[in-house]
C-alpha cells in the first residue's frame, strides 16, 4: 500500500442529523414542559408581583423595622444585621452548638457502617448471586431511603423527646440505606477478574467478597464514607431545626423569639462550618485516593 495518494475519494451523501419525527417529538416535549411549569407557578403563587410585595418584608427582616402599635407606642424591632457578636451570650455557645452538630453527623455516619456494609454485600451482583436475598436487600434500602431524615427525627423525638440522640438515630437509619446503595454500586463496578479467579479456586461468595471485592473497593468505600460524613453534618443542621439538637435547634429558637441578629450569626457560623467540613472531607478523600 502506498502512503500518499492523489486519487480523489468518492463523494458520499451526508446522513441527516435530524429526522422529521425527532423534530416533532422535541416540539411536543417543549410545549408539555412549558405547560407543566406554568401550572406549577399558578399553584404556588409564584409571580413577579409576589416577589415585589415580599421585598418589603425581607427588608424589615434584614435591617429591622419600627412598629407603631394602636396605643401610640412605637417599638423598634431589630433585624438580622448588624450581627449579634456578643462572645459569651452568642458566639461561644454557637461554637459549642456547631461542635454538637458535628458529633451528631459523625455518630450518625459511623454507627451505620456495619449494617450498611451488610446491605451493600447482599445487594451487589458481585458478592451475592442469590436473587431473592438481592431483591430483599435492595427493597429494604429503597423503603428506608424513601423516608427523609427529618421524618425519622420527628418520629424519634416523639418517642424519646428533644435532644441530639434522636438526631443520631435518624441519621444512622437513613445513612444505612444511602451509603449501602452507594457501596453496593461501587462493588458492582469492581473488576470481575479476581472474583472469577477465586471462584475457580473454590471460594464461596462470602470468601470472594472478603478476599477479592473488599480489598479492591476499599478506597472507594472510604471516599463514599467521607462524602456521607460531609452530607450528614449538613443534614444534622436541618434535623436541629425540628428539635434534634445542635446549631439548627438554636437557629430555630432564635427565629421563634424574633432574635434575627443572633439567628443570622448562627447562620454565618453554619456557612463556615459546612465549608470547613467540605474542604476537610475533600482533602481526606484525595489522601485516601492516593494510598
Amino acid at each position: 500500500m502506498s502512503g500518499l495518494t492523489t486519487a480523489p475519494r468518492p463523494r458520499l451523501d451526508i446522513p441527516p442529523r435530524f429526522r422529521p419525527s425527532g423534530v416533532a417529538a422535541a416540539a411536543l416535549i417543549t410545549v408539555a414542559l412549558v405547560l407543566v411549569h406554568w401550572y406549577a407557578a399558578v399553584q404556588t403563587n409564584t409571580s413577579p408581583k409576589e416577589l415585589l410585595e415580599g421585598w418589603r418584608g425581607l427588608w424589615s427582616f434584614l435591617f429591622g423595622v419600627d412598629r407603631t402599635y394602636p396605643n401610640g407606642k412605637t417599638i423598634h424591632q431589630d433585624g438580622a444585621f448588624p450581627l449579634d457578636l456578643r462572645w459569651a451570650e452568642t458566639i461561644r455557645p454557637g461554637l459549642e452548638y456547631c461542635l454538637l452538630t458535628i458529633w451528631i453527623g459523625l455518630l450518625g455516619t459511623t454507627l451505620s457502617i456495619p449494617v450498611a456494609l451488610f446491605f451493600a454485600v447482599i445487594s451487589s451482583r458481585t458478592t451475592n448471586r442469590f436473587v431473592p436475598l438481592w431483591f430483599l436487600g435492595r427493597g429494604v434500602m429503597s423503603v428506608l431511603r424513601a423516608v427523609p431524615e427529618t421524618v425519622y427525627a420527628l418520629m424519634f423525638i416523639a418517642a424519646v423527646g428533644f435532644g441530639a440522640f434522636p438526631g443520631v438515630i435518624a441519621l444512622a437509619i437513613h445513612n444505612v440505606a444511602v451509603m449501602g446503595k452507594l457501596w453496593s454500586e461501587a462493588m458492582d463496578e469492581v473488576d470481575q477478574g479476581p472474583v472469577e479467579a477465586l471462584r475457580v479456586a473454590g471460594a464461596s461468595p462470602t470468601q470472594s467478597a472478603a478476599h477479592a471485592v473488599l480489598p479492591a473497593v476499599m478506597p472507594s468505600l472510604l471516599g463514599l464514607l467521607l462524602y456521607r460524613f460531609d452530607t450528614n453534618v449538613r443534614s444534622s443542621v436541618i434535623l436541629g431545626t425540628v428539635g434534634a439538637g445542635g446549631i439548627g435547634f438554636f437557629i430555630k429558637t432564635e427565629v421563634d423569639s424574633f432574635h434575627f441578629d443572633t439567628m443570622m450569626t448562627y447562620v454565618c457560623m453554619v456557612i463556615v462550618l459546612i465549608i470547613v467540613i467540605d474542604l476537610f472531607s475533600a482533602w481526606l478523600r484525595r489522601k485516601v485516593g492516593t494510598v
Binding site: 472469577e196 479467579a197 475457580v200 478476599h211 480489598p215
Partner: peptide, 26 residues
C-alpha cells in the same frame, strides 16, 4: 483444577503471600 489468566487477576492491593493463600480458600 486451577486456572491462570491472561490478565492474571491477582488482588493488587494484597500482599503476594495473601494472594497465594487465597488459592486454599476452597
Amino acid at each position: 483444577v486451577a486456572m491462570v489468566f491472561q490478565k492474571i487477576h491477582l488482588v493488587p492491593r494484597r500482599s503476594v503471600l495473601d494472594n497465594v493463600c487465597a488459592g486454599a480458600l476452597g
